[in-house]
Nucleic acid binder design. Structure first.
Lengths: 214, 214
DNA sequence: GTCTATAATATGATAGAC
DNA sequence: GTCTATCATATTATAGAC
């Protein structure tokens, strides 16, 4: 039970950025953006339709012209978050073939950068999925599994090649994954560290954790 | 945005255990225990006084004979969680003097075991502090800082002794801390791994991460 | 210490005018 | 696409009987 941010805020960052091209135009996009802020800072359950609408500058009832329910807004945000995260990891891996150490660094870097560059989206995607009805959650969990498998496959390949040595690859994956997840909570652009610097250090940590000594 | 548990539940575990001696007798203890379950599974905001009371077998109004408000119940749970976590880390460190590698293993093991043995308490302590008013949160954040400092001091001492080598001790601390935090979300007693086995592996990971090659 | 009853307010969502 | 008005229900918390 510790650690960062030092305040009792849920995350340190303040930006509500969404990945380029993912936010719709007009009120629909504003609803997404303001919902992101409120869901990240207060949690889905504590953020009301009226809260969201008032920040957009409309009334609660008007929100229903854009989304059929509050759950649909959350589902859309979590979908964007999961897809962006998976896309980045996959693209990084494809560009890094074939050295397994380079592959590991690429996926860890992509994982960390996604969480540092879109901290609110990451917090909502990681911490609010439980609030969705099962039919909304199922396809999102499928994306999650893809991302997990991607990292697990790199670790397994490294072990098979004799480059990595770990007592348990599942535990290695959860450990490396967790390091990156948590970045979304404490990262802030004015910390003096860029996402890339953090990603580099965490990629080193991941390699060491897997037994790479060079 | 990934990782375990595979379901859309917030955590895999089902037990609502509190550390021995921390749960009051009678209704007061039951309120704490049922609140723990509901806050962990649904989040503080989504769990109602009526939900809690009905699980205890009383009416909502009767809860106010035991706690002055819902926030007081949460504050009590988070206090128990933070104190137990700090106490375990401190005791482990005191028993492990003076080899810095042994110290590191001790604090990491204590950190991981606390999160595996009391997963609901850990999830609530780590994920719901933002729901508390600032006057409730301040003393809890102080405990958090103590736990952080404890681990940071071990890392710093290892670096000073030339046993550990890292580009940034703060990043090392957040990485090691995050590994343990996340255990509370995916750990379940019927996974075939004991908290001790996970703790041993994570202690190895932590040492490697800090540049220990032996 | 628990109950019933209730206050005061907030919630997600809908109907229908413009 | 936004509004006002409203429905139906849920919320935290209190008052006062037993």
């Amino acid at each position: 039970m510790f650690s960062t941010p030092a305040s009792h805020r849920r995350l340190a960052a303040v930006g509500t950025d969404l990945p380029p091209g993912t936010a719709p135009d007009g009120s629909r996009g504003q609803i997404l953006s303001e919902s992101l802020r409120l869901f990240a800072e207060q949690g889905y359950g504590a953020a009301s339709i009226r809260d969201i609408a008032s920040r957009v500058g409309i009334k609660g009832a008007s929100l229903y012209s854009h989304y059929p329910s509050k759950a649909h807004v959350l589902a859309e945000l979590v979908r964007i978050g999961h897809e962006e995260h998976f896309r980045r990891m996959r693209d990084a891996l494809l560009a890094a073939q074939p050295d397994v150490q380079v592959q590991l660094a690429a996926v860890v870097r992509a994982h960390v950068c996604a969480h540092a560059e879109y901290p609110m989206l990451a917090v909502v995607s990681n911490s609010e999925l439980h609030a969705l009805p099962e039919e909304f959650a199922t396809p999102l969990l499928a994306i999650r599994r893809q991302s997990e498998t991607l990292m697990l496959d790199v670790i397994q390949r490294g072990v098979n090649l004799g480059v990595f040595k770990v007592p348990d690859i599942q535990l290695a994956m959860t450990a490396i994954g967790a390091m990156g997840l948590r970045v979304a909570h404490w990262y802030t652009p004015d910390s003096g560290k860029t996402p890339e610097q953090i990603a580099d250090t965490y990629a080193l940590f991941a390699a060491r954790l897997l037994g790479v000594t060079a």
